[in-house]
């Protein structure tokens, strides 16, 4: 980066384009300059929007979501530490916002779980276990238990699908599967193991 650019009170767009990510963030944090913020926005808008789209599955909602993420980014710039990586910092804000958005739609987790072929409600004995499971159901408990029985990649696919609500295609991209079938197999294996886990009495009685 050029040190001249930082001394100027209003760096031009031309100078800003030459700034590295992290220097740009320091400039924006120190001067709260709109041009610097706009440059950060220009560099990250596509990534943030696409990230939001993965969670919302809807273009309009993703625009809302991305806007909120940028509000948080600009608002939080004062707390940006010199030497930190801007990309990681932006990622953290986008991730936390999307996950909190999911938490607010807490019904999602419940609905996703209901679509798991886990316990047959018609079976009277299983019914009791299922109710007990639902009463004590919480994300952390479910996943803590799932972690014990699943392989690493299965658990990742399981969390991304049932907790983050990502599509199978997106999971295959995130986990670097060769094709969509690979991700689907991971999810199916994870679901089968999870089903067995839920049906085991010791889990329900925990």
């Amino acid at each position: 980066m050029s040190t001249d650019g930082r001394r100027e009170s209003q760096p031009s767009q031309h100078n800003l384009a030459a700034y590295g990510d992290d220097d740009l963030a320091v400039l924006a944090a120190e001067t709260r300059d709109e041009a610097a913020c706009a440059e950060i926005y220009r560099r990250y808008r596509r990534r943030v929007y696409l990230w939001c789209f993965r969670y919302t599955h809807d273009a309009d909602e993703a625009v809302d979501c991305a806007q909120e993420v940028f509000v948080r980014i600009f608002r939080g710039l004062g707390g940006y530490q010199r030497g930190a990586k801007l990309s990681t910092w932006v990622y953290q804000i986008a991730r936390n916002y999307c996950l909190s958005l999911l938490a607010r739609k807490s019904r999602l987790w419940r609905e996703r779980l209901q679509s798991l072929d886990r316990v047959d409600l018609a079976d009277g004995a299983a019914d009791g276990r299922r109710r007990k499971f639902e009463r004590t159901e919480s994300l952390r408990r479910v996943l803590a238990a799932a972690e014990r029985v699943m392989e690493a990649r299965e658990l990742e696919a399981f969390v991304l699908h049932y907790r983050d609500g990502l599509s199978v295609k997106e999971i295959s991209r995130t986990l670097g599967c060769d094709n969509i079938t690979g991700a689907r197999t991971l999810i199916q294996n994870a679901r089968r193991k999870f089903r067995r886990l839920v049906e085991r009495k010791e889990f329900a009685d925990e």
């Binding site: 990534r47 990230w51 990681t88 990622y91 986008a94 991730r95 991209r173 670097g176």
Partner: peptide, 12 residues
């Protein structure tokens, strides 16, 4: 994996 995916979104 999530972070790597975030960074790769620019090219997706």
């Amino acid at each position: 994996r999530r972070l790597a995916r975030f960074l790769a979104l620019e090219q997706d």
